[in-house]
Simulated assay, not measured.
Amino acid sequence: MPADQEHAAGRTPRPTSAVEVRRSARRRRTVSAYREGDRTVVLIPARMSEAEEERWVAVMLDKLKAQEKRRRPGDAELAARAARLSEQYLGGRARPASVRWVTNQNTRWGSCTPSEGSIRLSHRLQGMPEYVIDYVLVHELAHLLEPGHGPAFWRLMEAYPRTERARGYLEGVVAGESLPYVPPARDEDREQEPALPGGESSD
């Protein structure tokens, strides 16, 4: 078996906190964690006690949050990013008066008010891949030029090369949030262990 694969000895689901703990017989001392859609996966040695598991889950969640916080742009950085994206994909024609994060948009990823030139992004996007945030920004910038979702709007969006990929990612997040929790089977399987990002190694 390749070195980057593990024999999963079991999984401990935590649906209330969207955390899944996966125990591995191959893992001896290391603990790692990564985001998988809207779920956090923590990989631990199979022999770890329940108390150690709880402690390490808390440690890894704090570590991930700290890493993601460092990657989250503030409002000023978001505005600069929007300006750069407008130049790159919309010929600089979309010039928002303000771009900011908001916490009151739980059913939309972003919104804009063309008459005011204001763009708002949901805080739920924070921590998502950069190309997804860029997609939502370009989407709202395009609305400053074309308020509706007609053919002219989607012609503007064709300039952004990761539109379909980003839409698929966001649709997956929405689908994951609406699915009922089903405990995973405990049958033995083999998994690729993704690297911990930055860690151990609208509509």
Rank of each mutant, 00 (worst) to 15 (best):
P2R: 03
G10Y: 05
G10D: 00
G10S: 04
R14Q: 01
V19D: 00
V19E: 01
V21P: 03
R23L: 08
R29D: 11
V31H: 00
Y34I: 12
D38Q: 03
D38M: 04
R39Y: 10
R39A: 08
V42K: 00
L43Q: 11
I44V: 15
A46L: 05
S49W: 00
E50C: 06
V57W: 05
A58Q: 13
D62Q: 01
K63V: 10
K63T: 02
K65Q: 12
E68D: 09
K69F: 08
R72K: 00
P73A: 05
G74K: 04
G74S: 12
G74Q: 05
A76P: 02
A76M: 09
R81K: 15
A83S: 03
Y89V: 14
G92I: 06
R93D: 00
R93S: 06
A94Y: 11
R95H: 07
P96F: 13
A97Q: 07
R100T: 06
R100D: 07
V102Y: 02
T103L: 10
T103D: 09
N106I: 14
T107G: 11
G110C: 05
C112P: 02
T113M: 06
P114Q: 03
R120C: 12
R120W: 13
H123T: 14
R124G: 02
L125D: 08
E130M: 10
Y131V: 13
D134C: 04
Y135P: 01
V138Q: 00
E140N: 04
L141D: 00
L141C: 01
H143E: 04
E146T: 10
G148E: 13
E158D: 12
P161W: 07
E164I: 07
R165V: 15
L170C: 13
V173R: 00
V174S: 09
G176I: 14
E177L: 14
S178P: 04
S178A: 15
L179P: 04
P180M: 02
P183Y: 09
P183I: 14
P184A: 10
A185T: 14
R186Y: 02
D187F: 09
D189E: 11
R190T: 11
Q192N: 08
E193W: 03
L196S: 04
L196Y: 01
G199M: 12
G199I: 12
E200R: 09
E200N: 02
S201P: 13
D203K: 06
D203C: 13
D203N: 09
